[in-house]
Simulated assay, not measured.
Amino acid sequence: MVESSYEYDEKELDISKLKGVGDVTAKKLKDVGIFTIQDLLLYSPIYISEVTGIPAERAEKLVLQAYEYLKDIGLVPKDFTVANELFNKRRLRKYIKTGSNNFDEMMKGGIPTQAVTEFYGEFGSGKTQLCHSLAVNVQLPEDEGGLNKNAIYIDTENTFSPDRIVEIALNKGLDPNQVLRNIIVGKPYNTVILLNMVKKLSELIKKHNVGFIAIDSAVGPFRAEYLGRGRLSERQQLLNRFMHDLLRIAEVYDVAIAITNQVQARPDVMFGDPTRPIGGHVVAHAVTYRIYLKKAKAADLRVAAIVDSPEHPPREIIFRIWEGGVTDP
């Protein structure tokens, strides 16, 4: 594993350092995966109260205390910040190069940290290929397009291929065994395990110096388990919590998160492209960037289009999939 560059002493951020948190409260929080003061910001007071048994008012007070503590040491922004400070902070964001200059230029540098990027498209459109490439590229030095960090790959559909990682690594002149050791793979069998894995991400990020997280695919398991309109509301509520947990993790721990998503056809669309990503408005509003991937005429070419972004204009580019991952045509 690449050595951690975590800026603050973990003891300084241990949950027990928060004023009023004694041994009993600290144990309740740690038993459900809340180990640090940062972790408290990932969950709502209602959720913390439900899983720990801590009264809701007490849980709310703890979250606010954590927020104030992290503001004081500069790990989270102030309540209100002038726009130029936010602009300067955004300039400090880091990017993972995809391997395609076309793709990176479209994204103004690559796949950014502090954000959730969604790749959606039909089978074979390049979603998994991009995730594999990014899981390797994040390990490169910063001057070569990486973050000099490790990756987590949550594989919900049995698409993760160690052989493909080895192929990409060899074509980049990297030690494939070391590259594989730097990727932590999770294989959830259902949504309960998937949600539990997400709860453990903050601990893994700090322990293993993680800079990139892929969830391939993110919405598919919810769609498969919660069938029919009778369970639609329940599914969307769980999916909403899942997506917002990912967004908070990306922002709080300065990591790049990429999720893949499937598509379905809209029978009411008579003209144009009838496909749309699954997950509805919950996913659409939660992701930072939404990128639509399509097959091109040539077998090794793919089209990537920015569908939704707070800072990028609509644009479409072509990239190529080859033995070494992703590149330009």
Rank of each mutant, 00 (worst) to 15 (best):
T117E: 07
Y189S: 13
N177Y: 12
S202W: 03
G124Q: 11
L204P: 00
N102F: 09
G211A: 08
D163L: 15
V219T: 15
E167T: 15
Y189T: 13
K97N: 09
R181Y: 02
R229T: 04
G99Q: 09
D155R: 13
V166A: 07
T159L: 12
Q236L: 07
G230K: 11
L130T: 07
L239M: 14
R231K: 14
F160Y: 15
N240P: 01
V192I: 15
V210C: 07
F222W: 07
T117L: 12
S133D: 03
L232Y: 09
S161K: 13
K127P: 02
D155A: 11
N150P: 01
Y189K: 14
I193F: 04
Q139E: 04
N171S: 10
H208P: 00
G228W: 09
N150E: 06
N148A: 14
D104V: 06
R181I: 00
L147F: 07
G211Q: 08
P162A: 10
C131Q: 08
A224R: 14
A151G: 07
Q114C: 12
G186S: 12
G228A: 09
L194Q: 15
K127G: 04
N209P: 01
D175F: 07
M106S: 09
G99E: 08
F222A: 10
A218D: 04
N177E: 15
I215W: 06
P176C: 10
K199H: 11
K187P: 01
T159P: 00
I184P: 00
N190H: 14
R231P: 00
V179M: 02
D155W: 11
I205V: 13
F123V: 07
N209S: 12
D155N: 11
I111M: 09
G145P: 07
A169S: 15
K187Q: 15
Q178A: 08
E234P: 03
S133M: 03
